[in-house]
Design a protein around this nucleic acid. Structure first.
Length: 269
DNA sequence: ACCACATCCTGTTAGC
DNA sequence: TGCTAACAGGATGTGG
């Protein structure tokens, strides 16, 4: 569930808290989370290294070291936490890094889907991701090109990271409600006006959530363990059966691409 | 090329 | 009340 606003919130905190810190120890508690190298290789490469930057690409978090990169994807329930050294280890601890300054960086993940990639020589990774929705490159025109000629439901297209990087189920549903577009509409069938509305809606929803510190609807907390506030602003996500905040019509819930999708059958067409 | 669906996981909740 | 089954979903892989 950490989507763009949540990952960006974590990024900002990590940038503040770990840049300049040195890795003193590496403890990988869940082997399978580390995808592309061995635990020994990771420990050898990380120990003694200093964090020089923290970046985000889509929902990926990229911790930069002098030459290397440590890349996390939190999937649904992953949490990255900066804690005092010696704090009692939580259930579902996946990775623990001891840092200089008596702090630790934890990757905690209840569902064990989070991934770790170690790139000893850096390089551009992750690859194959679409446009950053809050960047200048994401224009109304760009969204129109993405939708053009596609027969897939617009909701499925918004969730496809190869087109737009960072939207998940929450912000796809919220953006479509704000744009007054049904999630099951064929992407290519949207009018120029609808595409423009959707483009503005995506950017507005993401920006507002970012200001609120993200959405804590399941177990999301930021790198300091604090919840976001955007769950209080959600209009449709997770509200199937409840009245529309605009017209009181009961919200519908359908499945699109295996994901539940909530929308107002009256406001969204 | 494109789409639908299963898979991985575990905690929570709905239903019997 | 206590059990089981469904559900939550990001990315990936498979099969149609």
């Amino acid at each position: 569930m950490p989507e763009l606003p949540e990952v960006e919130t974590i990024r900002r905190i990590l940038a503040d808290r770990i840049i300049g810190k040195q890795v003193k120890g590496v403890q990988l508690c869940l082997r399978k989370a580390l995808r592309n190298t061995s635990p020994e290789e990771l420990a050898r490469g990380l120990t003694g290294a200093v964090f020089t930057g923290v970046k985000r690409r889509g929902k990926f978090l990229i911790l930069e070291l002098k030459a290397a990169k440590l890349v996390f994807h939190l999937r649904m329930t992953g949490q990255l936490l900066v804690v005092k050294a010696g704090s009692p280890p939580p259930k579902h601890l996946t990775l623990k890094l001891a840092l200089s300054g008596d702090e630790e960086l934890w990757l905690v993940d209840q569902r064990k889907f989070a991934t770790i990639d170690w790139l000893p020589r850096g390089g551009d990774y992750p690859r194959g991701l679409g446009v950053e929705p809050l960047s200048r490159e994401f224009t109304g025109q760009r969204l129109a090109e993405i939708c053009q000629g596609r027969r897939t439901p617009i909701k499925a297209l918004l969730l496809n990271q190869q087109h737009i990087a960072g939207l998940g189920n929450i912000y796809a549903d919220e953006s479509l409600f704000r744009a007054k577009v049904r999630p099951d509409r064929m992407a290519g069938s949207l009018s120029a006006k609808e595409v423009r509305r959707l483009h503005r809606a995506i950017r507005a929803v993401l920006r507002e959530s970012l200001i609120a510190g993200g959405t804590s609807v399941r177990n999301y907390v930021n790198a300091e363990g604090k919840q976001g506030a955007y769950q209080n602003e959600l209009k449709v996500y997770g509200r199937g059966g409840e009245p529309c905040v605009v017209c009181q019509t009961p919200l519908e819930r359908i499945k699109i691409g295996g994901r539940s999708s909530c929308f107002c059958p009256r406001c969204q067409s």
